[in-house]
């Protein structure tokens, strides 16, 4: 019971901060709401006994990537609360509404399908670092290697971009 209450509270926070991210006109506040969103999403992961995923969500997204986002926003001084002006061409707004409503309809239809069934009980061992590490380095080792290559290419590319001016 307490768990369900916690879930609805966190879900409310996650959804409202997500709406806040796209409606807020101040970039810094928008980024901060995104941090809150990531943090409460991590708490939702904890509720699903996916602790490792949750803590990585905080370390990587809330702790590192969003600090970089805020860093860049502040460095470019985008924080001034002047409303940004978008060039709104005729088809963009209806298209955005269409895509958003379509995704929402998809989500609602899927939620309605599973609404009646009782929630599945997760195995408490499924979210531990040991289980995830074992799966990653046995069953999915090829994917891990590919992602490693991709990240290396990304690092080399960013170094090249940064060095182009000085070389």
């Amino acid at each position: 019971m307490a768990e369900r209450l916690l879930f609805f509270l966190l879900a409310l926070i996650v959804v409202s901060t997500a709406v806040g991210v796209v409606t807020n006109r101040n970039p810094v506040r928008s980024a901060l709401l995104l941090v809150a969103n990531f943090f409460s999403l991590a708490l939702l992961y904890f509720l699903l006994s996916a602790q490792f995923l949750g803590v990585l969500q905080i370390i990587v997204y809330a702790g590192a990537i969003m600090v970089l986002f805020l860093f860049v926003i502040m460095l470019l001084n985008l924080g001034s609360p002047e409303p940004a002006t978008f060039s709104e061409q005729g088809y963009r707004r209806p298209l955005a509404w269409l895509i958003a409503l379509g995704m929402f309809a998809l989500l609602v239809s899927q939620a309605l399908v599973v609404a009646g069934t009782p929630p599945a009980q997760a195995d408490p061992q499924v979210g531990t670092a040991r289980t995830i590490g074992y799966a990653l380095f046995t069953e999915w080792s090829f994917a891990v290697v590919v992602v490693g290559v991709l990240l290396t290419v990304g690092v080399i590319g960013s170094i090249l971009l940064a060095r182009r001016r000085s070389a």
Partner: peptide, 16 residues
């Protein structure tokens, strides 16, 4: 059983 990672997560929030 993620004690050390929990500490890293909390200390990474200290930058804000």
């Amino acid at each position: 059983d993620i004690g050390l990672l929990y500490f890293l997560a909390m200390s990474s929030l200290a930058a804000y």
